[in-house]
Each structure stands twice: as structure tokens, then as C-alpha cells.
Design a protein around this nucleic acid. Structure first.
Lengths: 159, 159
DNA sequence: TTGTATATAATGTTGATACATTAAATGTTA
DNA sequence: TAACATTTAATGTATCAACATTATATACAA
């Protein structure tokens, strides 16, 4: 089923909530989850034609950030945005698509070094233009200052 | 694996990002997903001892909001926070736990009316105290005004 | 060195999710 | 009314995720 996230002015309208939230804290929590799903959904719509899931995209970006240095599977796990059962299997998928390379770490034979391939870098580059477009649409909604303040409020929520 | 979300002052530190984000909009998006996972994780830790998943809890709250009126499965789908394949199977689980009741809608025999049971209401009541505690811990981090402003910024992000 | 603990990745298993399809009831229109 | 479209929930299926376990390598202490 294709879920349609409705765009409107407040979270209450979006989730058709009739009774008001008891506290602004509860409201912000529901809003956070809903908005996060909304963003993930729109991101996935971009990634799907490229055969990537959100998590795979995420891993590729982590690898690009360190390129040309390798990143261990355990490091990938640490830096993933959402908890994951298995970075191994995720890397499996990327290896199968020839987007990353997996080699035994020379200094520690338990560890596995993962490097993004040229093919992986090229794919990310194509996706960068989509990200840039997305950023532009966001800029219509929030100023840079507001976006920064939003980030800061989220940081404090997790503090 | 139990993932530990680290508490610190900025999203860059939390995800061990070495290179800065290109735009505040990209930063806020990553922060949003990370924070949402952080919240979902801490919520799940509360719900697990009660044998509920986040989605099941969500459905129960929707039903309580309309109690004693029934809610159709299609309405539940519409109001869920995250897209879901199957409200049917989710209601199945709640029926099995005797937390909700499922009856054929008299006016439309395609539809199925779902009502929360007294047992379901009692369970939610117990969880309310946990929610209240959660709200208190949040109040240390954000003022009510800040929480409201955060909600407003999220609303505008989805606009 | 040996034994034990820890770190790391892979695998097994169970259950949940996404997506497509089906089944049945209702709505619509010729 | 008959035919077709739409709505609603349930089901089938393949994939993904959570959690536990295993296998191997390394660290460390006796």
C-alpha cells in the first residue's frame, strides 16, 4: 500500500487527532516520529529507482566520508543512524552490487575492511544532485538559521 | 545487539562524523532520523516489559482516543504514524492479547469495527505513568515554549 | 605459555514489514 | 437489473530486522 503523508500546518491535522495532546513534550515526540517517517519515505522514493535502500545509502555515505581509507564493519555499525541487526549482511548486498569492496584487515584478522568502489562513488555522485534538489525545496520552508536551530533543539532533546 | 545511543551535544559527535555537513538542511535531516530512532528506542525499552510493540501501543492510543466508539481498520491505517503493511495483522495481535475487540461493522459489512477493551484501557493507564515520567525528563531539556517551537519547525519541514 | 575474557564478523532463527494479490461488499452507471 | 469499478480487510510471499549463537582472532592475566 502506498501511504500518503498529508501536508498541512500541524501534526494534529496530519494524524487526524481529535483530542489535543496532553503536553507539548508528548506532542513533539509524536511529531518527531511522524516527520521522520515522512522524510524517510520521501528519501526512499528517490533511492528506489537506484536500487538502494536507505540503510545501504547510509553505509555508502559513511564509506565515502573516509575514502580512500577503509572502514571496518564494526565502525559502520557504530555510525549507522538506526540500530541494525547486521552490518555484515548489509555489506553483502553492496558487495553483490559491486558498490563496495570487502577485504581482510591486515592488522587484525578478525576485522573486515570495507572500501567504496569507483562504481559506488559514481552512484553517490548521481544521487548528490537529487540531495541538492531536496535541500532547495527545504530552503523554501526553513531558513538556514531555523534549520540550525531545529538541529540544536533535537540535540538538546537527546542530551 | 544492543545499540547504545550516545548522549552528547551535537549530532556530529553522536554519529562520529568527521567531515562537516554540506548544508544545514542535510544536517537537520540526519539529525531528525537519528533523534527519531533514539526516541523510538527509549520508548521500546518501556513497552517491551508490557509485551507491546511501538505500533501496537500506537493503535491502542488511537482506539482510546475514540473510546467507547469503534474505529475501523481503515481509519487505524490512516492514522498510524508510520506506513504499515497491515493493520489487520496488527489488530490480530491485540485481539490475541484481549486488548481490543473486533466486530463486523453493522452499516458496512466490508468494514471491521475495533474497540479497546477494559483490559486494554487498564494497560494504557499503567503506561501513562511512564509517559508522565518521560515528559518530566524532557522538561529538563526543553522548556514548553521550546517544545512547541520544535513542533512548529517540524510542521513547517513537512509543509 | 596456558587459560580466560574480549572483540569481531558471520550465521540461524523467529517474527515483522513491504508489497502484491485475493475475496467480499458496496457504489455507480448503462 | 447487470456489468464494472471501488472500497475494505485478509492473505501470500519475499525480504528485512531483532536477537541469540557461533567461529575465529586477539588481549590479558596467572
Amino acid at each position: 500500500m502506498l501511504l500518503h503523508y498529508i501536508c498541512s500546518m500541524s501534526i494534529e491535522a496530519d494524524i487526524k487527532q481529535t483530542t489535543p495532546f496532553k503536553t507539548p513534550y508528548h506532542r513533539v515526540m509524536v511529531n518527531l516520529m511522524y516527520t521522520s517517517n515522512w522524510v524517510a519515505d520521501s528519501q526512499m522514493r528517490v533511492l528506489k529507482p537506484f536500487g538502494l535502500t536507505l540503510q545501504q545509502y547510509n553505509v555508502l555515505r559513511i564509506l565515502r566520508g573516509q575514502h580512500p581509507n577503509p572502514v571496518k564493519v564494526s565502525d559502520i555499525t557504530e555510525r549507522m543512524l538506526d540500530k541494525m541487526s547486521n552490518a555484515s549482511r548489509l555489506v553483502d548486498k553492496l558487495v553483490a552490487k559491486k558498490l563496495v569492496l570487502r577485504t581482510e584487515c591486515p592488522s587484525d584478522r578478525r576485522a573486515v575492511d570495507v572500501v567504496i568502489t569507483d562504481q559506488g562513488l559514481a552512484l553517490l555522485k548521481r544521487l548528490d544532485t537529487h540531495q541538492a534538489k531536496w535541500d532547495l525545496t527545504q530552503a523554501d520552508k526553513l531558513t538556514e538559521e531555523e534549520a540550525n536551530y531545529l538541529s540544536q533543539l533535537l540535540d538538546r532533546l537527546r542530551a
